[in-house]
Every structure is written in structure tokens, then in C-alpha cells.
Design a binder for these strands. Structure first.
Lengths: 211, 211
DNA sequence: ACCTGAACACCGTTCAAGT
DNA sequence: ACCTGAACACCGTTCAAGT
């Protein structure tokens, strides 16, 4: 899994190295020195292109996680805003290990990020994933906001609340359950969407965007 | 918020220092050197009592999160229904295995119930816990229903939806997080409570009890 | 502008030495 | 057993110096 990209700028080599190292080393993120070494550049070169490590990791995450919801779907006003928001959230509920079963996915996630070692590196890596998921939900919210389907408010904060709810659905999927599950999932997603969307009747704005 | 505990063993002073520093510094955990300094001991003393930093943080978490809810609290109509429901949900978020930290608790839970084997016995055991948690939330809902604070509806179903949201908060607590966490938790709980409680103005009943 | 590599200010953990 | 403080092996970031 090592090797060197035959062509490409220094910057591309750095990003490539970061992406390939995301899944290695037991879930902990590589150090900038290790990334620079694999890219075959100095730490100074890395620093020149990515002044903070977070900049690099965020960029690598976007590449690693980019199974995108067809980007024009969000703007398709022929489908109700509520349904588009729910689709977006469903997307987050089964994140990119979508090929593997939800149970296995959570097993891996939790082993990695809260296992016996759960290094600070793992923490940093998880936070990067977290930001990426939030970013996607926020994109959905701002798109719907332009249509007037979502009221003014702190969309980043709303996105964070929605992500928390998505985590609940996700872990509920993974845990043992009886036949109530699918019903519950739809209940929760609809309730979350309704709490966020502009109320059809003119009452106050959704409880998730304003305390 | 500094100061020194007048009495107490070295060990107690270390734990006290760690607890007071949990909420500071923008959500990131203080370094062992900083904790030792506030406790007024050397890093070696800290290391003697807590060979790994995680040991100390886990112990501090238990203290920080362990605020108990008196059992007659549910019927105390002097406190708003919304606050009582939120307290009940907070209780479920850090369930009574509260001696161990949330991270460790989820580690155990998931290792047990969705590990590689995940026996049928484990499944049955989890479903029992699940029912018990639902039962508690449902008890809260029916109590509030007697007061008219919760509308008619399928309370078991509503309880299940609320438990799913509580799972989201719980796993979010366990996973790495930055300083947004406490805010998000309150946002989500308030939104969940508002979705369930009888609306102050006379609009339709909450989205969690009726699809 | 792009890149080097030493240096800086941390970090968690280890450990010989004291009491 | 309890505690000290130096030392170790890292870390992310800075920076004078080269091209």
C-alpha cells in the first residue's frame, strides 16, 4: 500500500499520502512527519501547502468519503423539502462503510474511536469525519434555506443536532431490535425534519435552531 | 475556579483537579502536567496513581456526570413538564451503570451486543435492557399525560422514538467531541421534549406520537 | 513561490532516586 | 508505598535559509 504517485505536484502527493494513511495504523491518524515521509517531501513542504494539519485532514476526508448524494438532488424542488432533508439524513445514518452491515460498521467505528487505546490521534481523526458529516447536513440546510423551507438560524448548530439524532438511528440499527425498528426510524426522521423545517402554519421557528 | 482542596489525599486532589478542568479550555482535556500543577503534585505522583491518562479521565467523568434524580421528582408539578421530561431523558443517556464512564460503557455494550459472535443470549439480554429503558420513559410520559402535558397517543411508540434519540446523545458523548457537545445535547433534548409535549398554542399533536 | 531541515514548545509516559 | 523531577520519544508548528 506504499509506493509513490508517478506524476503529480508536491501538493497532490501530500494529499495522496494522507488519504492512503487514513485507514492504516489501527485507526489513528498519521503524524505530519509520517505523511511527509510517504509523500517523499519535507515537513516544511507539507507545512507550506497545509499550514495546519486540520487543513490537510479535512481535504483528505472529502476525498475518502466522497460518495456523493447526486448533487442536483438537493435542488430538485419537485420533491418536497421534507423528503429531501430526510434523504440527506438517511445518507448520514449509514455512512460510507455502506457496503458492510451497520452492525459491523459500528463495531469497527467504536473499536477504533473508543477502544482500549483510543489515542488522541483517533480522536482527531473522528473529529475530522464528524466535521465532514456536519458539513454535508449543513449544505442541505442552506440549500433548503434558500428556498425558504428552512428558517433563518444557526445552521451549523442545527446540523450538529441532526447529526446526533442520526447517530441514534445508526446505533439503534446496529443493536438488537425487534420489528418496531423501521417504524421508529421513520418516526424519528420525520419528527426531526418537522422540527427543523419552516412550520406550514405560522408558528415560531423550529426548536432545533433556536433554544 | 482554581484554589486548592484544603484536605484530602494526593489522589483525591488529582481527581479534583481533573474534574474542575474538564469543562475548561474549550472542551479539550488538560494535559497531565497542567492537572498535576493544579493539584499541587508532581507528574510522577499523578503517574503513580493513574498510570495512563485515560484512567484519570474516566474517573473524573464518573464524578462529573453523576447527578442523581430523586424518584418523586416525576410528580413534582412545581417544575415544568418539559424540564422533568428532559431530566428523565438525561437519566437514560447516562444509564445506571454510571459508575463507569460513558465511553467505557458503550465499549462494553457494543462489545457484548454486537461483537463478532453476539450470541442469542446477548441479544435477549439487550432487549431486556431496552425494554426497561423504554418502560422508564413511558412511565414519565404517562405521568405527564395525567397532567395533560402530553397528548393522547401511542406512548410506547413515542417512548421508543425518544430512546433512539437518547442513544444518539449517549454515543455522541462517548465518541470524541469538541466543545460544541454540551450545547448540542441541550438543543436536542429540548427539541425532543417540545416535539412530544402538548403544544402551548393549539396546533396538531407532536410529530413523534403521530406519523 | 516553493522547499529544506533544524529548532521550538509542547505532549504522555518512563524511571532512577529519594522518603 | 508514595512521591520527585529529569529524561525519553514523540507531536504540530515555526522559521531562517536555500532555490
Amino acid at each position: 500500500m506504499a509506493g509513490r504517485p508517478p506524476e503529480g505536484s508536491t501538493r497532490d502527493r501530500i494529499v495522496w499520502a494522507a488519504v492512503t494513511m487514513l485507514g492504516e495504523k489501527g485507526g489513528s491518524i498519521a503524524s505530519v512527519r509520517a505523511i511527509a515521509a510517504r509523500a517523499g517531501v519535507s515537513t516544511g513542504a507539507l507545512q507550506h501547502h497545509f499550514p495546519a494539519k486540520r487543513d490537510l485532514i479535512d481535504e483528505a476526508m472529502v476525498i475518502a468519503y466522497d460518495l456523493v448524494l447526486p448533487s442536483d438532488y438537493l435542488e430538485d424542488t419537485s420533491v418536497p423539502a421534507r423528503d429531501r432533508l430526510i434523504s440527506c439524513l438517511r445518507r448520514v445514518v449509514s455512512p460510507p462503510g455502506a457496503e458492510i452491515a451497520p452492525r459491523r460498521a459500528w463495531q469497527v467505528t467504536l473499536e477504533r474511536y473508543l477502544g482500549p487505546e483510543a489515542s488522541d490521534d483517533a480522536r482527531v481523526e473522528y473529529l475530522a469525519i464528524d466535521r465532514e458529516l456536519c458539513r454535508r447536513i449543513e449544505l442541505c440546510l442552506t440549500t433548503l434555506h434558500r428556498e425558504g423551507a428552512v428558517p433563518d438560524g444557526d445552521h451549523a448548530r442545527t446540523a450538529r443536532a441532526l447529526l446526533t439524532i442520526a447517530h441514534g438511528l445508526s446505533v439503534t440499527r446496529a443493536l438488537p431490535h425487534d420489528d418496531h425498528r423501521a417504524t421508529t426510524e421513520t418516526d424519528v426522521l420525520r419528527a426531526a425534519a418537522d422540527a427543523v423545517l419552516t412550520a406550514p402554519a405560522g408558528n415560531e421557528d423550529g426548536p432545533l435552531s433556536r433554544g
